[in-house]
Design a protein around this nucleic acid. Structure first.
Lengths: 340, 340
DNA sequence: ATGAAAGCGCTAACAA
DNA sequence: TTGTTAGCGCTTTCAT
């Protein structure tokens, strides 16, 4: 069964006017008499007329929708980003189409394909941890689709990027552990393909070096699916606790990994922080309720979403091709269980 | 700058055919010669031709998109529902447009208005806890927009509904507390406007009565914004612990309330479950990591999303007006920290 | 087997 | 100030 709305044609017929007059009256064109405008406006209001956005899109060659691809909306970090995106997009009359890659490359490709076929006007993407082939993304970008990266970006594609200072965030977290006396600090990291992983591991290593500690490759574990598959984290943690001597602390580079490590340490009945301390990136709101309240690196997710969307809409609405791309780098915040 | 795709016209011109022939060839019409089909199909494939969905929508008067309104995607329960929705919708070629009410009635109205104006083909909604006026929803429904309710439904609108057995879920949780010896069980509930609240409070009271306990109105606290505003929960919990004698357990009727109570009890330095036990509805994946692992009532969120979407698409694609509406009631699951 | 033309709802260039 | 017409990309009668 179909819901059929009032059209300009209906109004024109009823009022004995042409569709163009009605159209112009509705858009308050100066070439329409006040009297006509009034009649049209009133009648339209009475029928609760809404211009058909699809017809508009066809005409303007613009869907007024933007696509968003993130790993998982169930992840607080991403849902906060999405809230930021929506706050700006809706304000400007754009619809947001959210899709999830679930850290799966094939799913990401399919989704991308799908969004493109739905003729989105632009794309906000945080690539999946499994993304190692940029062909499709590149070709979409080359064919003119405006793209802005959020958080996880890729080097090869030259466009706006909104990120955090991953190096610094990781550095701070690691220093925090060092200051508390931990010296055998392991790192459970996201996929090596991700630029954020490199940066965070970089910050971690720099902090160690500052304390004259040599980073030990055995102490760094990469999770290709970013902890999406729990067994990855299981393997990582199991291997770490088998080392002799054992690590006395773990730094995890993402939300999912931080909670994943927690889960594993609990399963192994390892006291946190007593036996092994834990810290890592996380935007979860439940952190303070965990059985072992830990210090985390928080990202300004909402703001990242906002800024990225502003940049994207700018790209979309720019008359001439944009050449001057920026990378906005925001700061992270180290949050202890008590200091809030 | 604009991204312009190949059109049927381009293909027709290049191949010296009419647009109708090309269109038919692409849709594999039997009235096109095999030879022509081949040429067209090959050429189209080479150019990676994608029919413009907007043009299709205009023609078919169908946007192939469905709107979803939930309180908050950051809530695991809703994000799981959304995953269920997506799994079915995408399968069938529908785009899902997700919006959040943030438990705010005005926001819900605006969002609804917006979605309707974007000509969605149907709507999945879990009403906000602040919803007390159904006028808009009703008029949309009457004008023919297919609607399916998920979880939180309203009595007055006659359509498909996908819910859980709230009464039973609440009953089980309360019995669980009673079996462990708790006798002064308070209830922190969602907005009274919500039908799920009535059902859950009903189950809670039935359990008490089964143990010959008389429900005490002072022991039931309603949170109009469903815990979205933390101070609501703060007030509720503060009032409860001021009672003499104090409650020895709390049953919370939603995810946000369950974690909210936990937060408050922690803030008041009340040991859980030692001083006051806690149980409630929750689909959070972090529950088992909380400092006081609690028993929760889980809802089959993913499945709810799937079923609701199947019903909605059925409504959308039905040739004749549907009169026979069902309410699908799924079962909840009581999950203890250990039994998993 | 193929093409011409109309129409989905809207806007805008062009006429009047 | 208002109307006529064409066109956005596609499908679908109706001709040929």
């Amino acid at each position: 069964m179909k819901y059929k709305a009032t059209t300009i044609k209906d109004i024109a017929k009823a009022l004995n006017l042409s569709t163009s007059t009605v159209s112009r009256a509705l858009r308050d064109s100066h070439e329409i008499s006040a009297a006509t405008k009034q009649v049209v406006l009133e009648y339209a209001a009475r029928l609760n007329f809404q211009p058909n956005p699809i017809a508009l899109s066809l005409k303007e060659r613009k869907s007024h929708s933007i696509g968003v691809i993130v790993a998982e909306i169930a992840n607080s970090f991403f849902s906060q980003i999405i809230n930021g995106i929506e706050s700006v997009a809706n304000e400007q009359g754009y619809t947001v189409i959210i899709s999830q890659s679930h850290e799966n490359f094939e799913k990401e490709v399919r989704t991308l394909q799908y969004l493109a076929s739905r003729s989105i006007d632009g794309l906000l993407i945080s690539v999946s941890s499994a993304t190692n082939d940029l062909q499709q993304l590149k070709s979409l970008h080359q064919s003119g689709l405006p793209i802005v990266f959020v958080d996880r970006s890729v080097e090869d594609i030259h466009t706006h990027k909104v990120v955090v200072d991953n190096y610094q965030g990781a550095y701070n977290a690691t220093i925090h552990l060092l200051e508390q006396g931990y010296r055998r600090i392991a790192c459970v990291a996201n996929s090596e393909h991700l630029n954020i992983t490199k940066e965070r591991v970089g910050g971690y290593m720099a902090a160690l070096q500052q304390y004259q500690l040599k980073p030990d490759p055995q102490m760094i574990k990469y999770c290709f699916h970013g902890g999406m598959l729990l067994h990855e984290v299981e393997t990582a943690v199991s291997e770490l606790i088998k080392l002799k001597p054992k690590p006395d602390a773990i730094f995890a580079t993402s939300d999912k990994l931080t909670t994943g490590c927690m889960r594993m340490l609990k399963r192994h009945k390892i006291a946190v922080p007593k036996t092994i301390a834990l810290t890592g990136f996380s935007n979860s709101e439940l952190i303070e309720l965990l059985h072992a309240p830990i210090t985390v690196v928080q990202q300004p997710a909402f703001e990242m979403g906002q800024v990225a969307t502003e940049l994207l809409l700018q790209l979309i609405e720019s008359k001439r091709p944009v050449k001057d791309f920026k990378t906005i780098k925001l700061q992270t915040r180290l949050v202890s269980p008590d200091n809030k």
